[in-house]
Nucleic acid binder design. Structure first.
Length: 363
RNA sequence: CCAGGGGUGGCAGAGCGGCCAAUUGCACUAGACUGUAAAUCUAGCGCCUCACGGCUACGGGGGUUCGAAUCCCUCCCCCUGGACCA
């Protein structure tokens, strides 16, 4: 594969790439490249973390990049996820991994690493503290939105200040020259670029290239706001706190149907339309051609061979919201079927799901 | 540790001895309206009951009172300031 082809794949993943020139140099250098992404194992896993992440990771690995998936269990403790219970967080992480196994993720080139293992290494703490000494407290607080705590900066606990220090240390501990996270993680990644050069090799001495993927919208109506784009992206992203705002990887057919039917979807509107987003970022990635079935009185079936195709017709109001909703239900259901099957057949997976569900009930 | 201010339903936030199951806003649910959703309007929104009614509730515990979310005592927790700082 040529460098151009590899770059092209990475550009498909990145809604924004900071340091594209550096990325090209990295690709040209021929050195083995590591990209990193991390996650807090909390609650359920939705399609943005499941399906979309699999699509993105597969593109990155296809571009010849080795992926390190960082299980930020200790980070989640500082962020008080799952009641700050490390054991629960570990179980949820295992559950997420089971989901990915069944989601078509190319696991051959993905290595899972646990923060709870790394934490045993004094070198790690040395780096975390070093990162912390590079800037004033307020500089770290500014990145707080990445923890999903954007609205309540005054409400941060002291433990949460450690989170960005740890996340930045992770990048350099793992030797990641590329960070491939969501747009919501932009601010920490920028801080990592600033700090990187102040750290000495081997854990440091470079600026990571930041490949940020698109944040999939939640299903509800986006809030009215004139905030800047980054803040808005976070405000409208798919969240787990409202279960009907997100489609989860283990949702039933009925769940999918209910949620999609309830989704915000103004006719003719192609901006900030969650249903269209799912077509663009997931469905057309998985199905090269999509047939929208509809009653003959509304024009009969339409065959679409690209997202642009759909967007154009939708904009012209030649396709009705309900029609794309109904088709989306069927296709999403197909994509989630293997996951459901995995969780019904595989005993380990089944047990994990049961445990995770019990956490949700106890909360 | 001291002083002051707080802890009320999913959240925000009123109430400050009976008219409080608890104003109001948001969220949520249902119906009306649209070939979807949104917006708008109407209703519901602690639990049991068709209903009458009953039960459990205002941080925990105890008390005063015919009667307490509302007063007193005590404990826990949070916030603001102060004190301490070899």
């Amino acid at each position: 594969m040529t460098i151009e082809e590899r770059l092209n794949l990475i550009k498909q993943v990145g809604e924004e790439i900071v340091g594209e020139d550096e990325l090209i140099k990295l690709l040209e250098s021929g050195e083995p490249l590591i990209a990193y992404d991390g996650f807090e194992p909390s609650g359920q896993i939705h399609i943005a973390q499941g399906l979309l992440r699999a699509i993105n990771i597969n593109k990155m690995t296809k571009a010849g990049i080795k992926f390190k998936m960082w299980i930020a269990d200790w980070h989640a403790v500082t962020n008080n996820k799952m009641g700050g219970d490390l054991e629960k967080l570990k179980i949820v992480a295992k559950y997420f991994i089971e989901v990915w196994k069944a989601s078509g993720m190319d696991l051959n080139n993905v290595e899972f690493l646990w923060a709870s293992d790394m934490v045993k290494n004094p070198k790690y703490w040395e780096l975390v503290i070093k990162v912390g000494t590079t800037n004033k407290l307020s500089r770290f607080i500014r990145t707080a939105e990445f923890m999903g705590r954007e609205e309540s900066i005054e409400k941060l606990t002291a433990a949460q200040i450690m989170y960005p220090c740890m996340q930045i240390a992770d990048i350099f501990m793992l030797g990641a020259k590329i960070t491939q996270l969501g747009m919501d993680q932009r601010k920490v990644n920028m801080l990592a670029r600033e700090i990187g050069m102040q750290l000495s090799p081997p854990a440091g001495g470079w600026k990571p290239v930041v490949v940020s993927h698109h944040m999939l919208m939640g299903l509800g109506k986006p809030p009215l706001s004139d905030a800047d784009k980054a803040t808005r992206t976070i405000a409208i992203k798919m969240s787990k706190s409202n279960p009907d705002n997100a489609i989860f990887m283990t949702d039933t057919t009925e769940d999918i149907k209910r949620k999609i039917t309830k989704a915000y979807c103004p006719e003719g509107e192609v901006k900030e339309n969650p249903v269209l987003e799912y077509y663009r970022y997931i469905l057309f990635e998985k199905f090269p051609q999509i047939t929208i079935e509809r009653p003959s009185k509304y024009g009969g079936a339409v065959i679409l061979d690209s997202y642009q195709n759909l967007e154009q017709l939708y904009k012209e109001r030649k396709i009705h919201p309900l029609d794309i909703k109904q088709t989306a239900v069927i296709l999403l259901d197909q994509l989630l079927e293997p996951v459901r099957e995995h969780f019904s057949r595989n005993e380990t997976a089944k047990a994990l799901l049961a445990q995770v569900k019990s956490f949700a009930v106890t909360r």
